[in-house]
Design a protein around this nucleic acid. Structure first.
Lengths: 124, 124
DNA sequence: TAAAACCATGGAGTAGAGTCAATGGTTTTA
DNA sequence: TAAAACCATTGACTCTACTCCATGGTTTTA
């Protein structure tokens, strides 16, 4: 799959895909036809990018993601404390969920208050 | 309350507090003693900053926060479509919660897998 | 087959959110 | 009362994560 197709499929810009590849989050092989220099992405890259998008939207950094994805593939990262790393990210995500939920509650409350005051005013 | 105390209370750096004030997220009055130029923050600023921290950690931008806080105080923002604004932010927060939850599930799964393989290896 | 659409690389530029340093006053404390 | 700790302002700097050229090949399409 070429970069344009992958971009259309994932909603990420071509530039972002090239950027992610440079950061080592995804990989491509050189084009099948050696007449051009186009990247060729395996099908499963789309799925991988969905995980990456989720993690980015949830606030994980690219470098954390690289650490994680590298480990998931090779199963090893030298003398790296993956356990501690995972614990930290898990805590971080739980924190994001909690703060997002609290903020969401406030916003929902605000919207309800507005709807309420509309109800009072409009009938006049 | 002076900036150092507020910083200690909220965990935000003095620089961050001054930055937030410049952005209009919080306000201070000039010091009671006119002998110095120190900021004096009302007690309730701490609570306000907790909301701000939550919202920031959840991914809301400073400018969104400013819009929101300004509206909450004045109750009006001219011909601004607060309803649409709220809907967008709410959708955004729901998205963050969903992606964070999915990512969290993956990480928890990964941790479980590691614990599992430890169980197999350690007894040897 | 020529224009339009796609792709590559390299490097510069941008936005957002702080963070740091220099300089110079004010308070607190040993 | 002098050192240590605190505060102010201004402006430069950093970091992350893209995003945008400019230039030049390759495919696709009308």
């Amino acid at each position: 799959m070429r970069i344009g197709a992958l971009s259309a499929l994932t909603g990420l810009s071509r530039d972002t895909l090239r950027f992610y590849e440079k950061q080592g989050l995804i990989r491509s092989r050189p084009s099948a036809e050696p007449s051009n220099t186009y990247r060729d992405y395996p099908e499963e890259t789309a799925e991988r990018l969905r995980m990456i998008s989720d993690a980015r939207d949830a606030g994980l950094s690219i470098s954390d993601l690289k650490t994680l994805l590298d480990w998931m593939e090779t199963g090893d990262l030298g003398a790296f404390d993956l356990d501690a790393f995972l614990d930290e990210r898990i805590t971080q995500l739980e924190h994001v969920i909690a703060t997002a939920q609290r903020t969401l509650d406030i916003l929902n409350g605000t919207r309800a208050a507005i709807t309420m005051s509309d109800q009072i005013h409009i009938p006049e």
